[in-house]
């Protein structure tokens, strides 16, 4: 009980700090998720369209994922010519990881679009451009969304690694809490990080509901229990 009151008072006194770290954490997470998605969309679609590139692109994606995160944060400033504390390093690093996860998912999402629908749209006069926007992209949507939800959670978790190069995000609570041997600080950081992940996920699911009204598979609530999942995907 004593302990519980203590972390609450600490949070109350340092609320501004935690809030600003949380907001910055969320902002830092958003950009790599978005950039990773857009780039993966182009690469994944290409991989699916031209089978020649498929194995190269997908293998490339897998290799990206094997790069250890710590050295990447350290090496990137040299590669990009940025200062070590520049947050662009974190954005680039996390975009690479988002890409690594998403490329295969995007390629699979486009491969899973029913060929009947693609063939029929070609036969009635959709150009390739129209076909992408009106047929392939929306029909790949449910699988793309499932991939985005995974990337969203993993990126939000990874952002905290950026604290070791001085980024002001929730990772600061982990490094500082560790140095001061202050477990409550770490737990508050984890809680805030989880909150961001939850908000991002809810936003993604709601976006999916609005943009894909025909798709009834993505749900927050299943069988009356609140769980975060995509059935069957």
């Amino acid at each position: 009980m004593q302990n519980e009151e203590f972390w609450m008072s600490w949070l109350f006194e340092n609320f501004d700090l935690v809030a600003s770290l949380t907001l910055n954490h969320a902002a830092l997470s958003f950009t790599p998720i978005f950039l990773g998605f857009v780039i993966a969309l182009v690469l994944g679609w290409t991989a699916n369209r031209w089978l020649l590139f498929r194995s190269w692109i997908i293998a490339g994606g897998s290799i990206l994922y094997t790069i250890p995160s710590l050295p990447l944060f350290v090496i990137l400033p040299y590669l990009l010519g940025t200062r070590i504390t520049d947050e662009r390093n974190i954005i680039v690093a996390l975009t690479i990881y988002a890409l690594a996860i998403l490329i295969r998912t995007v390629a699979d999402a486009f491969a899973a679009v029913p060929t009947d629908a693609i063939e029929a749209s070609r036969a009635i006069g959709y150009s390739s451009w129209n076909r992408f926007w009106h047929v392939e992209f929306p029909l790949a949507g449910p699988v793309l969304l499932a991939g985005l939800r995974v990337v969203s959670a993993s990126t939000i978790a990874l952002v905290s690694v950026g604290a070791i190069i001085g980024s002001a995000n929730l990772g600061y609570l982990f490094t500082n809490g560790k140095q001061r041997d202050f477990l409550d600080m770490i737990l508050i950081g984890i809680g805030a990080s989880f909150l961001i992940a939850l908000v991002f996920d809810i936003v993604l699911v709601l976006l999916g509901r609005v943009l894909m009204p025909w798709n009834k598979r993505t749900s927050l609530i299943t069988n009356g229990r609140r769980i975060l999942s995509t059935k069957g995907a």
């Binding site: 029913p114 009947d116 629908a117 063939e119 029929a120 749209s121 036969a123 009635i124 009106h134 047929v135 929306p138 029909l139 949507g141 894909m212 025909w214 798709n215």
Partner: peptide
């Protein structure tokens, strides 16, 4: 077409 080819999302 035989498979109707209707767009399932529309």
């Amino acid at each position: 077409l035989q498979a109707t080819g209707l767009l399932p999302h529309r």
